[in-house]
């Protein structure tokens, strides 16, 4: 009854409830359209692999060449040496890892307090949190830049990590989850047994919150990895994240299109790997967030 969390069983359960109306069996037309959508979704990936493994002349052929060539490793190597793609991959891993950890850890702590504890000013604080989930970060960029300048962080990774280390969305997401996933009786019982709140958090809440923490962590990692606007402003080409490096590649420092696309592919592989491995959970997370949001 408190297992709202895990998407797969609840979906199966719903499917069973479906009769004639909501979920008819799909016909050939549905499968055809879905196959077309699938092809449109993956064609750019496929084309990138082809282009990154050939050379400029192959890319410029009409009709387009769709057979992979032998130059993938060579082009990867060129991309790694030309625009700091190696540094960029390391930087993006550090930044996205820190941000995902911070968002999940602080989001779970605050989410638990908002979901299960009573304290003065709770509603006001919660209102501020929810009210700002929709406000884009772009609005505050100028003062943020001035702040980072004052802290001597321009061009350095903390400038990218700090502004997204916590998110209002993370707190809200975990609060919604914990309201239903953690039974009040359980918290009360542990409290009566003399457990401190920190201990309750650690040994009762965290184990129950794990599925939501994992989903939030993955979504945050992906979003941070893919962020361009703020890193482009605050970092420079000597110490870039992957997206800044892709922008540098694109801006014409490298004349060879197959190298540019190899670099782009290299910067996409890590997050794509996460997505392919954990796609089911990510799909579940998005659908869950939708129902609850």
């Amino acid at each position: 009854m408190t297992t709202v969390a895990i998407p797969a069983p609840s979906r199966a359960h719903k499917n069973k409830l479906r009769g004639a109306g909501g979920q008819r069996a799909a016909g050939w037309l549905t499968y055809s359209i879905l196959t077309l959508v699938f092809l449109l979704s993956v064609f750019p990936f496929f084309w990138t692999i082809v282009a990154a493994s050939t050379s400029n002349t192959e890319i410029n052929k009409v009709p387009p060449n769709l057979i992979p060539g032998p130059n993938l490793i060579k082009n990867f190597h060129a991309a790694l040496t030309n625009v700091n793609m190696g540094t960029a991959l390391l930087n993006s891993t550090i930044v996205s890892g820190c941000v995902a950890l911070g968002t999940v850890a602080f989001g779970t702590l605050a989410g638990f307090a908002f979901a299960k504890l009573k304290f003065r000013g709770r509603n006001v604080l919660l209102f501020i949190t929810i009210g700002t989930t929709m406000v884009p970060m772009q609005i505050g960029i100028v003062p943020l830049y001035m702040l980072m300048n004052k802290l001597h962080l321009i061009g350095r990774l903390p400038a990218v990590i700090l502004p997204t280390l916590v998110t209002a969305f993370g707190v809200f997401f975990l609060r919604q989850y914990l309201i239903r996933a953690v039974p009040d009786d359980l918290v009360e019982a542990a409290r009566i047994d003399g457990a401190s709140l920190l201990r309750i958090f650690w040994s009762v809440v965290v184990p129950l919150a794990r599925p939501a923490m994992a989903v939030l962590g993955m979504l945050t990692f992906m979003a941070t990895w893919n962020d361009l606007f703020w890193p482009l402003i605050v970092l420079n080409s000597d110490n870039p994240t992957v997206q800044v490096a892709i922008d540098n590649l694109n801006a014409g420092y490298v004349p060879d299109m197959s190298v540019i696309l190899a670099g782009t592919l290299l910067g996409t592989i890590p997050v794509l790997a996460v997505f392919i491995l954990l796609g089911r959970q990510i799909v579940g997370g998005i659908m869950q967030g939708a129902i609850k949001g």
Binding site: V42, F45, M222, L261, T264, V271, G279, V283
Partner: peptide, 16 residues
């Protein structure tokens, strides 16, 4: 999962 795959790509990569 397949309809969501484009969402996993970054804006920069997709645009290039």
């Amino acid at each position: 999962i397949s309809v969501l795959a484009p969402f996993a790509t970054s804006v920069a990569a997709a645009t290039v």
